[in-house]
Nucleic acid binder design. Structure first.
Length: 517
RNA sequence: GGCGGAGUAGCUCAGCGGUAGAGCAGGGGAAUCAUAAUCCCUUGGUCGGGGGUUCAAAUCCCUCCUCCGCUACCA
């Protein structure tokens, strides 16, 4: 038997300085939908998420909370891990940068880079604001009193020099540009690709990859006064989670290079410039693709702690239900663009697309089968033209879904599914099975079977995005758990007449206005 | 400032050289299997302003206006 093709997809590892919010949920849901889609399509999938736990900010937050960094990160990391059950995530692994498998792997990568002459000891010099504990570039500074300079925060800065290890990033500009050229799908969407190319064309400086100003990090091998730059540390998780530095290990051999790193647009550069440069410098393969998605505003406003409009995923799921939320974030905006998470829009999708269009379609069909076909899957007969048209649309969905998922166009994939939902509702009205019940019961049975079979296709293909509801629909259709893969689509997996069906129950209740307190 | 992107129906957007489109919202109607869900019809736009190329321009070119992104070492 031939080996199944593999697919390795990652979320960024989330920085534990922050509690999980809609943004984290969004990225992870998108990856989950992708992972589920590929699994259903027969791929050997690896889906990774985790937490990024080192750095000065974490240390400060831990101190502020009166905890040790390890105790603090244990706690916050657990809140990210809890997103798994909350959002029905299917990740195969969850990595923390404080785990030994990671820290030792990163140190191995460091040693490799040193051996290859890609890292050298130098001096980092820059404008440093003691109050902010941060360096700033010349361009960020504004003039202060008496010829001094001020940071954007208003803090005074001073010229500071400290020893630091540097990565020879400047040597990789041409190689990176060639990589972008030869792999046009490496950065998506295209607008982001242009940005990255423009950035690299502007010239690259060597990158400071160690710090001596704090110690909450991975020690530099052979020079423990330094800890590693958090991005070198963090990015490497994608490899340490599959066994790096054991490049001959089963996991690494199977899954590296990753097929897709999903990221927010704010961390694009780290993934498309530094990361591939680190890897090429170490003689390793870069990931195949990096997709930068957009951000959500909340009722038209930027989410921020000060505005108090940061969405807690638990509250969001409690209010709307999980599958509606998953559906909304992937359906509402073209993936890659920014979107607005408004109550009105969520309810519109939930009541319109899910409850009225899809949920009600399933309900009306299953109820008619329940009442008029003895609660068993009806007997199909000869196909009328209208039947062929509808079934043809259903059969044609898989290829279209693949094309959309291939480029992470979740919104397109869902729109195509819902096109068939609409066709199905029109078909019900045109065929009017409630009238056929009296005039031509055999034809009624055929119509209901065609609808059930179409719904089977829709539900199987909707599983990646709304796994709970789609699974419920399939259960109500009497489709066994092991007959829900994409290989079961088409006539060969068709619903079998006579199969006893459970009593139908609504899958998507409409959202009704909450009591105003 | 430089580079890139976008401005099309009330809203969100598709169209990217050949008689202005979709979804939602609004208006009217049909049907009654169904979560009063569904289906049909319909109102609505001088496609940001101006100029140009063309038999023909949302669609190509120029220019102006507005908005957004990027312009490196917090992550």
């Amino acid at each position: 038997m031939a080996e199944r093709p593999t697919y390795y997809v990652t979320t960024p590892i989330y920085y534990v300085n922050d509690s999980p919010h809609l943004g984290h949920a969004y990225t992870t849901i998108a990856c989950d939908a992708l992972a589920r889609f590929m699994r259903l399509d027969g791929y050997d999938v690896r889906f990774l998420t985790g937490t990024d736990e080192h750095g000065q900010k974490v240390k400060k937050s831990a101190t502020a909370a009166g905890k040790s960094p390890q105790a603090f990160t244990d706690e916050v990391s657990e809140r990210f891990r809890a997103l798994g059950p909350l959002l029905n995530l299917s990740n195969d692994d969850f990595i923390r940068t404080t785990e030994p498998r990671h820290t030792s792997g990163v140190q191995a990568l460091w040693r490799t880079l040193v051996e290859r002459g890609e890292i050298y000891l130098g001096t980092y010099a820059g404008w440093y604001a003691v109050r902010d504990e941060a360096f700033y570039t010349e361009s960020e500074l504004s003039p202060g009193p008496n010829g001094s300079r001020l940071a954007p925060s208003g803090a005074p800065v001073e010229w500071v020099e400290e020893p630091s290890y540097f990565f020879r990033l400047s040597a990789w500009g041409e190689r990176l540009l060639r990589h972008y050229e030869e792999h046009p799908d490496f950065v998506a969407p295209d607008s982001r690709r242009n940005e990255v190319i423009a950035f690299v064309k502007g010239g690259l400086q060597d990158l400071s990859v160690s710090r001596t100003s704090f110690s909450w990090g991975i020690p530099v091998p052979g020079d423990p006064r330094h800890v590693m730059y958090v991005w070198l540390d963090a990015l490497t998780n994608y490899m340490t989670a599959v066994g790096y530095p054991a490049t001959d290990s089963e996991l690494y051999a199977r899954y590296w290079p990753a097929d897709l790193h999903m990221v927010g647009k704010d961390i694009l550069r780290f993934h498309t410039v530094y990361w591939p440069a680190f890897l090429m410098a170490a003689g390793l393969e870069p990931p195949r693709r990096v997709f930068a998605h957009g951000w959500w505003t909340m009722e038209g406003q930027k989410m921020s702690k000060s505005l108090g409009n940061v969405i807690d995923p638990h509250a969001m799921v409690a209010r709307y239900g999980l599958d509606p939320v998953r559906f909304f974030v992937l359906r509402e905006v073209p993936f890659g663009a920014d979107g607005d998470f408004s109550h009105r829009a969520v309810v519109g999708r939930l009541n319109g697309d899910l409850a009225n269009d899809f949920g009600n379609l399933v309900q009306r069909v299953l109820t008619m089968i329940g009442k008029n076909c003895g609660a068993r899957m009806p007997e199909p007969g000869a196909l009328a033209d209208a039947d062929k048209v509808l079934l043809g649309a259903a059969y044609g969905l898989l290829e279209r879904q693949r094309a959309a998922y291939r480029v992470q166009a979740f919104h397109t994939a869902l729109a195509e599914l819902w096109d068939v939902v609409g066709r199905s509702n029109r078909y019900v009205d045109e065929q009017a099975p409630w009238a056929l019940r009296k005039t031509d019961p055999a034809r009624m049975a055929m119509v209901l079977w065609v609808l059930a079979e179409t719904i089977r296709h829709l539900a199987i293909l909707a599983q990646p995005v709304i796994p709970g509801a789609a699974g419920d629909v399939l259960r109500q259709l009497g489709v066994a758990d092991d007959r829900r893969r994409f290989a079961d689509l088409g006539p060969k997996g068709a619903l079998v007449a006579g199969t006893p069906l459970p009593a139908p129950a609504a899958v998507f209740p409409r959202f009704v206005a909450e009591e105003t307190a």
